[in-house]
């Protein structure tokens, strides 16, 4: 049980790192989808009670929305705009990976110092959550394509979901479904805006979005 959870967490961390070094857009979407599925499995293993109805429901919701539906929305957007690769990111792939490594170290040090209430310290959960959030933010700010920024947001949101698992045992399941639905709608709206951007500018480079400034 415990071991499976740790395995899933390590997988999540590696997927975030892999994302930092991937150039192909559809490859990136695939990695995020895989991360969604891994996260969907976590609620089943992380708490000692195991397979409760509530955990099953959240797992199903996560897998359905973050593993299946969200990637489909994004792949659809890619097909519409017919762009395959992320060219010239603001921060190159190798430097991104190095920063990702540094983030991981920082996350582990930080998690060791946080006053996590006893009984909650489930090994890798907190450091992986912090690292995933930070890598998501890094992706959002360091990539120029609107689509990669959305992927960054999704990874960031995945990190927050992991953190939420710490406290989620006593939370009503409706809440988590609500959060999940909100995230999905956010990505859906972003997907629509991406298509509009590509139609308007013939590109999904956000560096074209520079008309509005002081």
């Amino acid at each position: 049980m415990e071991q499976t959870a740790q395995f899933l967490l390590v997988g999540t961390l590696f997927l975030s790192l892999a994302l930092l070094g991937t150039a192909s857009l559809s490859g990136c979407v695939g990695l995020v989808a895989l991360q969604g599925y891994l996260l969907a499995l976590l609620p089943l293993f992380i708490h000692r009670e195991g397979l409760t109805a509530r955990a099953l429901l959240i797992a199903a919701g996560m897998a359905g929305l973050k593993g299946w539906l969200v990637p489909r929305v994004l792949l659809h957007a890619i097909r519409e705009v017919r762009i395959r690769r992320e060219v010239e990111p603001l921060v190159g792939y190798i430097p991104s990976l190095l920063i990702g490594g540094a983030i991981t170290v920082v996350a582990f040090v930080l998690a060791g110092r946080l006053p996590i209430p006893p009984g909650l310290r489930s090994g890798l959960l907190v450091p992986v959550s912090l690292a995933t959030m930070m890598m998501g933010l890094l992706l959002t700010v360091s990539r120029l394509k609107a689509l990669t920024q959305v992927l960054g947001y999704l990874v960031f949101e995945n990190g927050i979901f992991l953190f939420g698992l710490l406290v989620s045992r006593d939370m009503p399941w409706l809440l988590e479904m609500g959060v999940l639905l909100d995230v999905f709608v956010a990505v859906f709206v972003m997907g629509i805006v991406i298509q509009q951007i590509s139609r308007e500018f013939d590109s999904i480079h956000t560096d074209r979005l520079t008309q509005l400034k002081e």
Partner: peptide, 26 residues
């Protein structure tokens, strides 16, 4: 195109911001 740019900035910044608020809630 200008309103599109404004919408995009609003969405990305707003989503990240509200994500941080969720973390604060946890």
């Amino acid at each position: 195109d200008r309103s599109l740019e404004a919408t995009w900035k609003y969405l990305i910044m707003g989503s990240v911001g509200i994500g941080l608020a969720l973390l604060g809630t946890y």
